[in-house]
């Protein structure tokens, strides 16, 4: 479904990603794990069209999308839930969710989608008319995920969904991600919380200093000596 093929990318003259390749098949939950600064976020931004690859390409359902503007990538059905929530602070929760359904294919059915999404996040139903900035960090992360789902994407990407959240909220966030995945959504997730992510994923990639050093089934990565030493501290 998604294929990143031999991509070099970065900002200005700074190269972050070197010869990065990865694949996500329909219905899979794939994760990229790695340390802070390894290039995980840049990988997602390259898929989203926020960063244009210097060499190599990004293909979605066989078509190259690496030259598209971010809004065109969203229209194709790829939605990124960004690191740090990035809500619209002076809008209500309801308006934030409606903004998620701005994509052409999602706008017409947004009332139905809203009901479905609120079924998954009952707490947000009680908060619909509150300003997004008045919510707790965990609630804001739930709004960010719900807003991403409002786009009815074919591929949903999460950038560090557990960052800065209390351990109990982290559990809730991963519960939600598992539910989203169980609904058949294709998911690409980037995390520093390696243990939780590998538990939730089918397959994983390990990114170090902008290069893919390992890829395997998630179960196998949990057993891998290098992963255990470098990321799980076992």
């Amino acid at each position: 479904m998604l294929e990143v093929r031999n991509v070099d990318a970065g900002y200005g003259s700074t190269v972050i990603l070197q010869d990065v390749s990865l694949r996500v098949e329909e219905g899979e939950v794939v994760t990229i794990v790695g340390a802070n600064g390894a290039g995980k976020t840049t990988t997602l931004r390259t898929v989203s069209g926020l960063v244009t690859p210097k060499t190599g390409g990004v293909f979605f359902e066989g078509e190259e999308i690496s030259k598209l503007q971010p809004h065109d990538v969203v229209d194709r059905g790829i939605t990124l839930i960004p690191e740090g929530r990035q809500l619209f602070p002076d809008m209500s929760v309801r308006e934030n969710l409606l903004m998620g359904a701005h994509r052409r294919d999602a706008r017409g059915v947004r009332s139905e989608t809203l009901e479905e999404v609120l079924g998954l996040f009952p707490r947000l139903g009680e908060r619909l008319d509150q300003h997004a900035s008045s919510l707790s960090g965990g609630e804001q992360q739930m709004v960010a995920i719900a807003r991403g789902m409002m786009a009815r994407p074919r591929l949903l990407m999460f950038d560090e969904p557990s960052l800065g959240l209390a351990p109990i909220i982290v559990e809730q966030v991963f519960d939600v991600i598992s539910k989203v995945a169980a609904s058949g959504m294709t998911v690409l997730i980037v995390e520093q919380n390696v243990w939780h992510t590998l538990k939730a994923a089918d397959r994983g990639y390990v990114l170090e200093n902008g290069e893919m050093v390992l890829d395997d089934a998630a179960d196998a990565l949990i057993e891998n000596d290098h992963v255990r030493q470098a990321y799980l501290g076992i």
Partner: peptide
Amino acid sequence: QNRAAARLMGIND
């Protein structure tokens, strides 16, 4: 309010 997020919603900024 948040240009980066707007682009991620599919808005042509």
